[in-house]
Structures are given as C-alpha cells and as structure tokens.
Write a protein that binds this DNA or RNA. Sequence first.
DNA 1: GAAAATCGTCAATTTTATTTAACAAGTTAG
DNA 2: CTAACTTGTTAAATAAAATTGACGATTTTC
Lengths: 190, 190
Amino acid sequence: MNAAPAPTQDDFDLGARLRYVRQAAGLSQRELAKRAGMTNAAISVIENNQSSPSVASLKKVLEVIPMSLTEFFALETPAEYKIFFQADELVPITQGAVQYWQVGDMRHHNLQILYERYTPGADTGRSMLQHDSEEGGIVLEGTLELTVGDRKTILKPGDAYLFDSRQPHRFRNIGKNDCVIVSACTPPYL
Amino acid sequence: MNAAPAPTQDDFDLGARLRYVRQAAGLSQRELAKRAGMTNAAISVIENNQSSPSVASLKKVLEVIPMSLTEFFALETPAEYKIFFQADELVPITQGAVQYWQVGDMRHHNLQILYERYTPGADTGRSMLQHDSEEGGIVLEGTLELTVGDRKTILKPGDAYLFDSRQPHRFRNIGKNDCVIVSACTPPYL
DNA sequence: GAAAATCGTCAATTTTATTTAACAAGTTAG
DNA sequence: CTAACTTGTTAAATAAAATTGACGATTTTC
C-alpha cells in the first residue's frame, strides 16, 4: 500500500488491441488490409507484435474501423480490465491530511472502492463535502467522527455508515491513532 | 454548412505535437534522443514529418518526457486550437427534427456557440429541456415559440432570449418556413 | 572577438517495417 | 468427399524508418 508507481497505463499490448478492434468490426486480416491499402501479412505481424507499425500505418488501419488514434490509445479492451489488485497497485490519492487508495480506475466503473487512512486529527474539512453519489463504509481502526446533515456520531472499528452524498458530510479522526476505513461510492467521487 | 465529414479529429500534426512536448520538457533533440536510446536525426525527421515513427519508437520517446501514448494522442497543442472556422467546419449535431451546428469542440471551451435550424414544426419536445447552463441567442429567420418555465413568447427575426437553463425550456418552430437561430450556452450542453 | 559548445538538418548506410508470394488448416458449396 | 474458398501465418524481397557521420548556424565561454 505504498507509493504506487504513477500508473503509466501504457504497458498495453498493441497487437492484441488491434486484433480486438478488428474483430469487433467483423473484418478479416485480409479485408482490413485491403481497405486500408496494406497487406494481410503486415496486419498479422503487427497483431502478433512481431513488428511495431508506424503511426502512419496504424492510422490508415484505424480509418477503416473507423476509430481515431486518440480513441485507440485511450481504449481498454475487456481483456485488459484488471479484476485483481495487489496492495501496491491501489492508486493513491492524497487530499489534505487524508490519504486514499482507490481500487482500479474510475473510467470504466461506476463503483469506487477506497481504502482511507486518516492521521490523528485529519479532517475532510469544515466546509462540508457534497456530491451526487451514494456512499458507505466500515471503520477498521481508530475513532471516526462522522457528520451527515444535522446528525453526528462517533464510529469505532466494526461500525459502519451509508448515506446519500448529496447531504453535506464530514469525516474526522478524533482518536490518538490513525483511523482506517474501507468505503464505497457510486457514482465515483474525487 | 453541409454534412461536415465526421470530425475524425486525427488530422493532427504528429511532428509539431512531438516538438511541442519536447520543448515543453525543455529538451533538445539530442538530449531527448539520448535518453530515449535513439538518435537526434530520427527526432528531427519525425518532427518535420519526414518519417512516421513506429509506435515502439514513439513510446520510447514519450517515456522520457514522460507522457503516455494515451495522453499524447489525446493532447492538443495550443497551436492546434482552431480560432477561425469555415462554414463547412462547423460540427453538425442532429437531434430529432432540429439540426445544430457547433463552433469548435467543447473539450477545450466553456462557451458553446450554435447555429440552429428548425424545420417547420420542429420542436425540442414536450418533455422540457433542463440543464446546468446559461443560454441566450438571436433569431435570424422564421418564427420561434419559446417556452421558459411558466412563460411563453413568440420571437421573430431580430428578437432574442437569455435565461438560466435550469429552468425547463422548449423551442418550437411555429412558422411555415425554417427557423434559424444563433445561440450560445455556457457551460456547453448536448 | 574567437574558440568551443550546442543547436537543428541532411545524405549515406544500416536496421526495421511492409510487401509479395506461398503454405497449412478450417469452412462452405456442390 | 472433393473442390473452391476462406482463414491466419511465415520466408524472402522491397520500401521505409532509424543510425551514422558530417554540415552550417546559433549560443556560450573566456
């Protein structure tokens, strides 16, 4: 759960990705090549990562799909979606005195799972949070003061919460030790 | 103002874009090449579009910046922002019986300028529009019935409107000819 | 100011991507 | 079941990208 390397996110498999979009378009290597003004062999070796296409070639190919380079590189094929995450793969999000680690990235999910660590005194702030979501969580360690709307309570390990995030809310660690929470939010916030 | 080609948006100048990110990183062609394990000459010809780098090469280069392929292709350099638009460069947006043409793309602007054409009877619909914007416009041709909240009026060429889009609203061409409007909206809607 | 760097570009060579052409495996037609 | 067609892959030939090494122009250093 340490500083994860900035998710470079570009360790993708270009060949697999091209094969994916080609098949999604319902084209054979030959058909795609023909329409792109190339040859099937080129498509084959590219898809098997036996050669790296020039951007110009890739562009020609994608114009047939059709898909822009921008889309292509922004794409994630289903096979590339991560399902399992090691502790050091959680994405750290620092916000004031509170440290969050997010499971996965929110571009493809509507459910945000966070591991949250509040140092003693850490506070989401006097100006209460408010966003268009629904959120809940369970306290694992420490003592949390949670304010939602005009209600306030103290939560200890094992305690939990669930509320409509449109209500103004505030999290505060009032204990002497770190406070740890696992929470969920949909749609994602932050 | 006819069917503009689907904004492929990938007619960018790869060379210029690379030069831009390189200079933004404060690197010379040689320095960049050295760190990327390539040669300055390659960088030079790429930046001048005298060759199209393989994706593998481009990736090596971008890793030095550092920038992901995804970011690179999603990027728009300041020099690429369009300021002037010819009629056929407006982006057509068809929505029901109403045809809109948008000036520029909204990814980099908070102001949306639309040329709107309502065929006789065209109507944004009984279920009123509502969004978090502020909008206004001027009628150029035809007869427009505009409903905003509980107020309704008829606008003729030269007439105009301006209101908070959070109020439910509805546009309707009640004339015998096309109704043409130029409007603005911020932040963008559609 | 001149010497020494550093800059970006270009021509010739090497390396790599792409084409051409052939192959084996799998499908469809008859 | 064969014949005619796909499919994707591979080896050799060709086209293009990347390296090497050199050039003139600009900036830095003294």
